[in-house]
Amino acid sequence: MTEFTHLVCPHCQAINRVPTPRLEQHPKCGQCHQPLFTGHPVELTNASFAKHLERNDIPLLVDFWAPWCGPCKMMAPAFVQAASALEPRVRLAKVNTDNEQTLGAQYNIRSIPTLVLFKGGREAARQAGAMTAQDIVRWVQ
Rank of each mutant, 00 (worst) to 15 (best):
A78T: 02
E87M: 10
A128Y: 14
L7T: 05
T132G: 13
Q13Y: 08
E3Q: 02
P88M: 00
I58L: 15
Q34P: 03
Q25R: 07
V95E: 02
F37I: 05
T132Q: 12
A50V: 08
A82P: 06
N99A: 14
A130T: 11
F49V: 09
P88R: 02
I112V: 10
N46S: 08
K94M: 10
H6D: 14
L7K: 07
Q13H: 15
R89L: 03
N99M: 13
C12T: 06
N46E: 14
I109Q: 06
G104F: 09
E123D: 06
V42W: 14
N99H: 12
R138A: 13
V42L: 09
M75V: 12
V80P: 08
R89D: 04
A66R: 10
L117A: 12
A14D: 14
R138I: 11
F37M: 08
Q134R: 15
V8L: 11
T5Q: 00
L115H: 04
F37C: 05
R110G: 13
A93W: 01
N108Y: 10
R126E: 00
S48Q: 11
D57L: 02
L23V: 01
M74A: 15
D98L: 12
H6E: 04
V95A: 03
R17K: 10
K51H: 05
A14F: 12
L36T: 08
K28C: 13
V90T: 01
L53R: 15
C9Y: 09
E54Y: 13
L117D: 14
R122D: 12
R91K: 14
C29R: 10
P27N: 08
T5L: 00
P10F: 10
V62L: 04
E54S: 12
S111P: 03
K73R: 13
C69T: 11
R110W: 03
